[in-house]
Design a protein around this nucleic acid. Structure first.
Length: 256
DNA sequence: CGTGGCTCCTGGCGGC
DNA sequence: TGCCGCCAGGAGCCAC
């Protein structure tokens, strides 16, 4: 379930391991992971190039390969990227793409469920536009956030999940931000005060998740996402429901 | 436009 | 113990 913070960590990992090395060989182990390109074509177009930079937009990750191609990643629910140095050999059993560099290191796209995708594109801006992605959450300022909430009509959690409205939040951090802001996931319109609280909660949750990694504070709802889970504030019983088709946890006592 | 349902996948877990 | 079946969810697609 990589959302913005996890994808950003993958980006930083790639940036510190995988740039400026010549790609020796690319091996697509399962072609279903590819989006809009066949395995042989994908392998051949990357071979011989070097990754030059790593960018992220929402939950999407991009590696610039050579001067005119971008490698695109979407992690789906279970996708991950890892870099192995020359002397390390491990395999998860669901390695879908292996990119081998000249010096012996390898970048591996691992995805048990194959909900993730990788592809190539010549133009990043049109890639993002074609998929209708809204602004990255970390680029949103308060006035842009207000504008989006004023434009969208549905339940607030649906808005947060809608990647065309704003890009980066998934199911878990949407619930988290709503909990931290004290707002019910099913709320349909927020007054300015609640909009502001939600905006600040989103920024806080993203910053916390980015800096603390998988070790999130005990005050976070995320630890209680199970049937019978308890509110971190006072132990009251959480509600479990569906919003926008996703399992939703919230505290009816603290989220109105 | 919003919403709900279905699809893609397979590991993990509950229940028998 | 072992196995069956359900559930999880990002996102695209379709029907209403």
């Amino acid at each position: 379930m990589p959302e913005l913070p996890e994808v950003e960590r993958f980006r930083r990992c790639l940036e510190s391991t995988s740039l400026h090395q010549t790609i020796d060989k690319v091996e697509v182990r399962d072609g279903r992971i590819l989006d809009g390109i066949g395995p042989r074509d994908f392998e051949e177009r990357l071979a011989g190039l070097q990754f030059q930079s790593a960018l992220r937009h929402g939950k999407r990750l991009f590696l610039k390969a050579g001067d005119r191609v971008w490698l695109t990643f979407h992690m789906g629910m279970t996708g991950s990227l890892r870099y192995l140095t020359k002397d390390i050999h491990d395999s998860s059993g669901h390695d879908r793409i292996i990119i081998c560099f000249g010096q012996g290191g390898r970048l591996i796209f691992d995805d048990p469920r194959i909900f993730g995708r990788a592809g190539l594109t010549a133009d990043l801006e049109s890639f993002i536009e074609d998929r209708g992605l809204g602004p990255d959450i970390l680029d949103l300022d308060w006035s842009a956030f207000q504008e989006i909430l004023g434009r969208k009509r549905g339940r607030i959690k649906s808005v947060l999940l809608d990647q065309s409205a704003m890009a980066g939040l998934g199911n878990l951090y949407s619930d988290e931000a709503l909990f931290q802001a004290g707002i019910c996931p099913g709320a349909r319109s927020l007054d300015k005060d609640h909009q502001k609280r939600l905006f600040q909660a989103i920024q806080m949750v993203m910053e916390t998740a980015l800096s603390s990694g998988s070790d999130l504070p005990e005050s976070f709802l995320i630890h209680s996402r199970k049937r019978g889970g308890r509110c971190p504030l006072d132990g009251s019983l959480l509600m479990r429901s569906k919003v926008a088709g996703r399992t939703t946890y919230y505290c009816p006592k603290h989220q109105k």
